[in-house]
Protein backbone atom coordinates (compact mmCIF):
# COMPACT_ATOMS: atom_id res chain seq x y z
CA UNK A 1 0.00 0.00 0.00
CA UNK A 2 2.72 2.44 1.05
CA UNK A 3 4.76 1.41 -1.98
CA UNK A 4 1.81 2.07 -4.31
CA UNK A 5 1.21 5.46 -2.69
CA UNK A 6 4.81 6.54 -3.01
CA UNK A 7 4.83 5.45 -6.66
CA UNK A 8 1.77 7.62 -7.30
CA UNK A 9 3.42 10.60 -5.64
CA UNK A 10 6.58 10.17 -7.69
CA UNK A 11 4.54 9.86 -10.90
CA UNK A 12 2.59 13.02 -10.07
CA UNK A 13 5.81 14.93 -9.41
CA UNK A 14 7.30 13.77 -12.69
CA UNK A 15 4.20 14.79 -14.66
CA UNK A 16 4.09 18.16 -12.92
CA UNK A 17 7.73 18.88 -13.61
CA UNK A 18 7.37 17.72 -17.23
CA UNK A 19 4.48 20.09 -17.87
CA UNK A 20 6.40 23.00 -16.34
CA UNK A 21 9.50 22.28 -18.33
CA UNK A 22 7.59 21.74 -21.56
CA UNK A 23 6.14 25.22 -21.44
CA UNK A 24 9.53 26.81 -20.89
CA UNK A 25 11.13 24.72 -23.61
CA UNK A 26 8.61 25.51 -26.33
CA UNK A 27 10.23 28.88 -26.58
CA UNK A 28 13.78 27.66 -26.35
CA UNK A 29 13.22 24.91 -28.96
CA UNK A 30 12.52 27.51 -31.57
CA UNK A 31 15.62 29.35 -30.50
CA UNK A 32 17.68 26.19 -30.60
CA UNK A 33 16.42 25.34 -34.07
CA UNK A 34 17.23 28.84 -35.17
CA UNK A 35 20.74 28.53 -33.74
CA UNK A 36 21.32 25.33 -35.66
CA UNK A 37 19.94 26.73 -38.90
CA UNK A 38 22.24 29.74 -38.76
CA UNK A 39 25.30 28.25 -37.09
CA UNK A 40 28.57 29.04 -38.83
CA UNK A 41 31.31 26.48 -38.90
CA UNK A 42 31.47 23.00 -37.36
CA UNK A 43 32.03 24.29 -33.86
CA UNK A 44 28.81 26.30 -33.74
CA UNK A 45 26.88 23.51 -35.44
CA UNK A 46 28.08 20.97 -32.87
CA UNK A 47 27.22 23.30 -29.99
CA UNK A 48 23.71 23.74 -31.38
CA UNK A 49 23.36 19.99 -31.84
CA UNK A 50 24.51 19.36 -28.27
CA UNK A 51 21.93 21.76 -26.92
CA UNK A 52 19.19 20.13 -28.99
CA UNK A 53 20.25 16.62 -27.98
CA UNK A 54 19.72 17.55 -24.35
CA UNK A 55 15.99 17.82 -25.12
CA UNK A 56 15.66 14.17 -26.11
CA UNK A 57 12.94 12.62 -24.00
CA UNK A 58 11.72 16.02 -22.86
CA UNK A 59 10.06 17.39 -26.00
CA UNK A 60 6.97 15.93 -27.63
CA UNK A 61 8.79 15.82 -30.98
CA UNK A 62 11.92 14.32 -29.44
CA UNK A 63 10.42 11.37 -27.64
CA UNK A 64 13.60 9.37 -28.21
CA UNK A 65 16.93 9.63 -30.01
CA UNK A 66 15.38 8.14 -33.15
CA UNK A 67 12.81 10.93 -33.33
CA UNK A 68 15.62 13.42 -32.84
CA UNK A 69 17.42 11.84 -35.80
CA UNK A 70 14.25 12.02 -37.94
CA UNK A 71 13.87 15.69 -37.01
CA UNK A 72 17.48 16.43 -38.01
CA UNK A 73 17.05 14.53 -41.25
CA UNK A 74 14.09 16.71 -42.16
CA UNK A 75 16.01 19.99 -41.76
CA UNK A 76 15.79 22.20 -44.85
CA UNK A 77 18.29 24.20 -46.89
CA UNK A 78 21.02 21.57 -46.94
CA UNK A 79 21.47 21.83 -43.20
CA UNK A 80 20.76 18.10 -42.95
CA UNK A 81 23.79 17.38 -45.15
CA UNK A 82 26.32 19.13 -42.96
CA UNK A 83 28.96 16.73 -41.65
CA UNK A 84 28.26 17.17 -37.92
CA UNK A 85 24.49 16.93 -38.53
CA UNK A 86 24.92 13.72 -40.52
CA UNK A 87 27.08 12.35 -37.76
CA UNK A 88 24.42 13.21 -35.17
CA UNK A 89 21.67 11.62 -37.28
CA UNK A 90 23.77 8.45 -37.48
CA UNK A 91 24.43 8.51 -33.74
CA UNK A 92 20.70 8.94 -33.02
CA UNK A 93 19.72 5.97 -35.21
CA UNK A 94 22.48 3.78 -33.79
CA UNK A 95 21.39 4.63 -30.28
CA UNK A 96 17.88 3.44 -31.16
CA UNK A 97 19.21 0.29 -32.84
CA UNK A 98 18.13 1.60 -36.25
CA UNK A 99 21.47 0.63 -37.74
CA UNK A 100 20.45 0.27 -41.41
CA UNK A 101 19.13 3.86 -41.44
CA UNK A 102 22.32 5.14 -39.80
CA UNK A 103 24.72 3.88 -42.44
CA UNK A 104 23.99 6.42 -45.21
CA UNK A 105 24.31 9.58 -43.08
CA UNK A 106 27.40 8.27 -41.30
CA UNK A 107 29.14 7.32 -44.53
CA UNK A 108 28.28 10.74 -45.93
CA UNK A 109 29.63 12.36 -42.78
CA UNK A 110 32.87 10.41 -43.11
CA UNK A 111 33.31 11.68 -46.64
CA UNK A 112 33.02 15.17 -45.23
CA UNK A 113 35.59 14.54 -42.50
CA UNK A 114 37.43 11.18 -42.50
CA UNK A 115 39.33 12.10 -39.33
CA UNK A 116 36.23 11.67 -37.14
CA UNK A 117 36.90 8.54 -35.10
CA UNK A 118 33.53 8.83 -33.37
CA UNK A 119 31.73 8.68 -36.74
CA UNK A 120 33.68 5.56 -37.57
CA UNK A 121 32.75 4.00 -34.23
CA UNK A 122 29.03 4.78 -34.81
CA UNK A 123 29.27 3.40 -38.33
CA UNK A 124 30.87 0.24 -36.94
CA UNK A 125 27.92 -0.20 -34.60
CA UNK A 126 25.51 0.51 -37.48
CA UNK A 127 27.20 -2.21 -39.50
CA UNK A 128 26.92 -4.57 -36.58
CA UNK A 129 23.22 -3.84 -36.20
CA UNK A 130 22.82 -4.54 -39.91
CA UNK A 131 24.56 -7.91 -39.63
CA UNK A 132 27.77 -6.74 -41.38
CA UNK A 133 30.00 -8.02 -38.58
CA UNK A 134 33.33 -8.08 -40.38
CA UNK A 135 32.77 -4.56 -41.71
CA UNK A 136 31.98 -3.53 -38.14
CA UNK A 137 35.32 -4.81 -36.88
CA UNK A 138 37.21 -3.23 -39.75
CA UNK A 139 35.52 0.09 -39.07
CA UNK A 140 36.39 -0.09 -35.36
CA UNK A 141 40.00 -0.62 -36.35
CA UNK A 142 39.93 2.55 -38.46
CA UNK A 143 38.33 4.43 -35.59
CA UNK A 144 41.13 3.30 -33.31
CA UNK A 145 43.66 4.50 -35.86
CA UNK A 146 42.28 8.00 -35.40
CA UNK A 147 43.01 7.60 -31.67
CA UNK A 148 39.29 7.45 -30.81
CA UNK A 149 39.00 4.72 -28.17
CA UNK A 150 35.88 4.71 -26.00
CA UNK A 151 34.41 1.91 -23.86
CA UNK A 152 31.21 1.67 -25.99
CA UNK A 153 33.32 0.34 -28.86
CA UNK A 154 34.18 -2.73 -26.86
CA UNK A 155 30.56 -3.84 -26.91
CA UNK A 156 30.47 -3.40 -30.66
CA UNK A 157 33.65 -5.42 -31.01
CA UNK A 158 32.64 -8.24 -28.69
CA UNK A 159 29.16 -8.60 -30.18
CA UNK A 160 30.40 -8.43 -33.77
CA UNK A 161 33.17 -10.94 -33.12
CA UNK A 162 30.81 -13.32 -31.31
CA UNK A 163 28.29 -13.08 -34.16
CA UNK A 164 31.05 -13.61 -36.69
CA UNK A 165 32.13 -16.73 -34.85
CA UNK A 166 28.61 -18.06 -35.17
CA UNK A 167 28.01 -17.13 -38.79
CA UNK A 168 31.44 -17.96 -40.22
CA UNK A 169 32.33 -21.26 -38.65
CA UNK A 170 36.01 -21.72 -37.86
CA UNK A 171 36.05 -25.20 -39.39
CA UNK A 172 35.59 -23.67 -42.86
CA UNK A 173 38.44 -21.16 -42.52
CA UNK A 174 41.58 -21.70 -44.56
CA UNK A 175 43.70 -19.51 -42.31
CA UNK A 176 42.57 -17.78 -39.16
CA UNK A 177 38.83 -17.90 -38.45
CA UNK A 178 36.89 -14.81 -39.57
CA UNK A 179 36.49 -13.41 -36.08
CA UNK A 180 40.23 -13.64 -35.43
CA UNK A 181 41.01 -11.93 -38.73
CA UNK A 182 38.52 -9.21 -37.87
CA UNK A 183 39.85 -8.75 -34.36
CA UNK A 184 43.49 -8.70 -35.42
CA UNK A 185 43.34 -5.13 -36.74
CA UNK A 186 41.22 -3.98 -33.83
CA UNK A 187 43.76 -5.27 -31.31
CA UNK A 188 46.72 -4.05 -33.30
CA UNK A 189 45.34 -0.51 -33.34
CA UNK A 190 44.28 -0.35 -29.70
CA UNK A 191 46.52 1.99 -27.80
CA UNK A 192 45.84 0.22 -24.53
CA UNK A 193 45.59 -3.57 -24.64
CA UNK A 194 42.24 -4.92 -23.48
CA UNK A 195 43.03 -8.08 -21.50
CA UNK A 196 39.47 -9.34 -21.71
CA UNK A 197 39.36 -9.05 -25.48
CA UNK A 198 42.73 -10.73 -25.85
CA UNK A 199 41.77 -13.58 -23.53
CA UNK A 200 38.40 -14.05 -25.26
CA UNK A 201 40.06 -14.32 -28.64
CA UNK A 202 42.66 -16.75 -27.31
CA UNK A 203 39.99 -18.87 -25.64
CA UNK A 204 37.82 -19.03 -28.78
CA UNK A 205 40.80 -20.06 -30.88
CA UNK A 206 41.70 -22.80 -28.42
CA UNK A 207 38.11 -24.08 -28.35
CA UNK A 208 37.95 -24.09 -32.13
CA UNK A 209 41.34 -25.76 -32.35
CA UNK A 210 40.11 -28.49 -30.06
CA UNK A 211 36.85 -28.87 -31.94
CA UNK A 212 37.96 -28.66 -35.57
CA UNK A 213 41.69 -29.16 -35.90
CA UNK A 214 44.91 -30.42 -34.32
CA UNK A 215 47.88 -28.38 -33.10
CA UNK A 216 50.11 -30.25 -35.58
CA UNK A 217 48.49 -29.15 -38.87
CA UNK A 218 49.54 -25.95 -40.57
CA UNK A 219 46.24 -24.30 -39.77
CA UNK A 220 46.30 -25.67 -36.23
CA UNK A 221 49.75 -24.22 -35.67
CA UNK A 222 48.58 -20.83 -36.87
CA UNK A 223 45.63 -20.93 -34.48
CA UNK A 224 47.83 -22.12 -31.62
CA UNK A 225 50.43 -19.40 -32.27
CA UNK A 226 47.77 -16.71 -32.42
CA UNK A 227 46.03 -18.00 -29.30
CA UNK A 228 49.35 -18.07 -27.43
CA UNK A 229 50.20 -14.53 -28.42
CA UNK A 230 46.86 -13.21 -27.19
CA UNK A 231 46.83 -15.33 -24.03
CA UNK A 232 50.21 -13.94 -23.08
CA UNK A 233 49.14 -10.37 -23.79
CA UNK A 234 46.03 -10.93 -21.69
CA UNK A 235 47.96 -12.04 -18.60
CA UNK A 236 50.80 -9.60 -19.14
CA UNK A 237 48.44 -6.65 -19.10
CA UNK A 238 46.37 -7.41 -16.05
CA UNK A 239 47.09 -7.93 -12.40
CA UNK A 240 43.83 -9.78 -11.80
CA UNK A 241 44.25 -13.29 -10.44
CA UNK A 242 41.69 -15.46 -12.18
CA UNK A 243 41.48 -19.24 -12.40
CA UNK A 244 40.33 -18.75 -16.00
CA UNK A 245 43.61 -16.97 -16.80
CA UNK A 246 45.61 -19.84 -15.41
CA UNK A 247 43.62 -22.34 -17.45
CA UNK A 248 44.00 -20.17 -20.54
CA UNK A 249 47.78 -19.88 -20.26
CA UNK A 250 48.14 -23.58 -19.60
CA UNK A 251 45.88 -24.64 -22.46
CA UNK A 252 47.61 -22.21 -24.82
CA UNK A 253 51.00 -23.61 -23.81
CA UNK A 254 49.84 -27.18 -24.39
CA UNK A 255 48.46 -26.26 -27.82
CA UNK A 256 51.77 -24.60 -28.70
CA UNK A 257 53.89 -27.68 -28.06
CA UNK A 258 54.41 -28.61 -31.72
CA UNK A 259 55.19 -25.03 -32.72
CA UNK A 260 57.66 -24.69 -29.86
CA UNK A 261 59.44 -27.87 -30.85
CA UNK A 262 59.93 -26.66 -34.40
CA UNK A 263 61.09 -23.24 -33.20
CA UNK A 264 63.63 -24.71 -30.75
CA UNK A 265 61.93 -23.01 -27.87
CA UNK A 266 61.54 -19.64 -29.58
CA UNK A 267 57.84 -19.36 -28.86
CA UNK A 268 55.60 -18.13 -26.08
CA UNK A 269 55.27 -21.60 -24.56
CA UNK A 270 57.82 -21.26 -21.77
CA UNK A 271 56.50 -17.89 -20.64
CA UNK A 272 52.90 -19.12 -20.78
CA UNK A 273 53.81 -22.02 -18.52
CA UNK A 274 55.63 -19.67 -16.16
CA UNK A 275 52.41 -17.67 -15.94
CA UNK A 276 50.36 -20.82 -15.36
CA UNK A 277 52.63 -21.85 -12.48
CA UNK A 278 52.84 -18.35 -11.08
CA UNK A 279 49.07 -17.86 -11.19
CA UNK A 280 48.58 -21.33 -9.78
CA UNK A 281 50.79 -20.59 -6.79
CA UNK A 282 49.07 -17.27 -6.17
CA UNK A 283 45.55 -18.69 -6.57
CA UNK A 284 46.22 -21.72 -4.43
CA UNK A 285 48.00 -19.65 -1.75
CA UNK A 286 48.90 -22.75 0.18
CA UNK A 287 45.65 -24.49 -0.75
CA UNK A 288 44.94 -27.00 -3.49
CA UNK A 289 46.18 -26.34 -7.01
CA UNK A 290 43.83 -26.06 -9.96
CA UNK A 291 46.31 -27.32 -12.55
CA UNK A 292 49.04 -29.42 -10.92
CA UNK A 293 50.17 -30.49 -14.40
CA UNK A 294 51.47 -26.98 -15.06
CA UNK A 295 54.49 -27.77 -12.86
CA UNK A 296 55.37 -30.88 -14.86
CA UNK A 297 55.05 -29.15 -18.21
CA UNK A 298 57.23 -26.22 -17.15
CA UNK A 299 59.73 -28.60 -15.56
CA UNK A 300 60.06 -30.40 -18.90
CA UNK A 301 60.51 -27.13 -20.77
CA UNK A 302 63.16 -26.06 -18.25
CA UNK A 303 65.00 -29.38 -18.63
CA UNK A 304 64.99 -28.97 -22.41
CA UNK A 305 66.75 -25.65 -21.94
CA UNK A 306 69.37 -27.15 -19.66
CA UNK A 307 67.91 -25.53 -16.53
CA UNK A 308 68.15 -28.64 -14.43
CA UNK A 309 67.82 -27.10 -10.99
CA UNK A 310 64.63 -25.33 -12.01
CA UNK A 311 63.33 -28.51 -13.65
CA UNK A 312 64.01 -30.49 -10.51
CA UNK A 313 62.43 -27.92 -8.24
CA UNK A 314 59.25 -27.76 -10.33
CA UNK A 315 58.99 -31.55 -10.65
CA UNK A 316 59.41 -31.78 -6.88
CA UNK A 317 56.61 -29.22 -6.42
CA UNK A 318 54.38 -31.37 -8.62
CA UNK A 319 55.19 -34.38 -6.45
CA UNK A 320 54.47 -32.36 -3.32
CA UNK A 321 50.87 -32.06 -4.56
CA UNK A 322 50.48 -35.74 -5.44
CA UNK A 323 52.27 -38.59 -7.16
CA UNK A 324 52.92 -38.01 -10.84
CA UNK A 325 54.60 -40.64 -13.02
CA UNK A 326 55.38 -37.92 -15.55
CA UNK A 327 57.30 -35.89 -12.98
CA UNK A 328 59.16 -39.02 -11.85
CA UNK A 329 60.10 -39.84 -15.45
CA UNK A 330 61.48 -36.33 -15.89
CA UNK A 331 63.50 -36.47 -12.68
CA UNK A 332 65.11 -39.69 -13.87
CA UNK A 333 66.43 -37.79 -16.89
CA UNK A 334 67.99 -35.02 -14.83
CA UNK A 335 71.53 -35.01 -13.43
CA UNK A 336 71.50 -37.45 -10.54
CA UNK A 337 72.79 -35.24 -7.77
CA UNK A 338 69.97 -32.69 -7.80
CA UNK A 339 67.71 -32.02 -4.84
CA UNK A 340 68.00 -30.51 -1.41
Amino acid sequence: MIRRLSALIVAALVIASGVGLGRAEDESMAKLRHKLMFAQGDRQVRAALDALAERIGQEPGFKDAGAFGDWLKALPSGRNRLGPVLQRIGWAYVAMKRGPEAIEPLEASLKDDPSQGATRAYLAEAFRQTGRHLDALKMVATALRTAYDEPHMRETVMSAAAALRKTQEAKDATGLPGYAEGLRDVLRNSRKPDPKLHSTLARWLLWDLEAYDKPTTERGRLWARTAAEHALTAVDTTTELLPASQRLTFDAAVALEAVDKDAYGDSERFDLLVHAVRLGEALADGGPHLIPQAFTHLAEAAADEGRYELAWRLAQKRLDISFSPRAVRLMRRLPPDLGD
Binding site: A303, G306, R333, L334, P335
Partner: peptide, 30 residues
Protein backbone atom coordinates in the same frame (compact mmCIF):
# COMPACT_ATOMS: atom_id res chain seq x y z
CA UNK B 1 78.11 -37.59 -22.87
CA UNK B 2 76.52 -37.86 -19.43
CA UNK B 3 73.76 -35.51 -20.46
CA UNK B 4 73.23 -37.39 -23.68
CA UNK B 5 72.96 -40.63 -21.76
CA UNK B 6 70.38 -39.06 -19.50
CA UNK B 7 68.40 -38.15 -22.63
CA UNK B 8 69.02 -34.44 -22.21
CA UNK B 9 69.99 -31.98 -24.86
CA UNK B 10 73.63 -31.15 -25.04
CA UNK B 11 74.45 -27.83 -23.44
CA UNK B 12 77.28 -26.01 -25.08
CA UNK B 13 76.69 -22.33 -25.01
CA UNK B 14 78.35 -20.59 -27.93
CA UNK B 15 80.03 -17.23 -27.67
CA UNK B 16 77.64 -14.41 -27.00
CA UNK B 17 77.65 -12.93 -30.47
CA UNK B 18 76.99 -16.31 -32.05
CA UNK B 19 74.28 -16.97 -29.47
CA UNK B 20 72.46 -13.80 -30.43
CA UNK B 21 72.75 -14.72 -34.09
CA UNK B 22 71.13 -18.04 -33.27
CA UNK B 23 68.16 -16.38 -31.63
CA UNK B 24 67.00 -19.42 -29.70
CA UNK B 25 66.01 -18.31 -26.20
CA UNK B 26 67.67 -21.30 -24.53
CA UNK B 27 70.98 -20.63 -26.27
CA UNK B 28 70.87 -16.87 -25.71
CA UNK B 29 69.88 -17.26 -22.11
CA UNK B 30 72.48 -19.90 -21.41
Amino acid sequence: RAEQKAGLKERRWPELEKAFGDGRPAIVRG
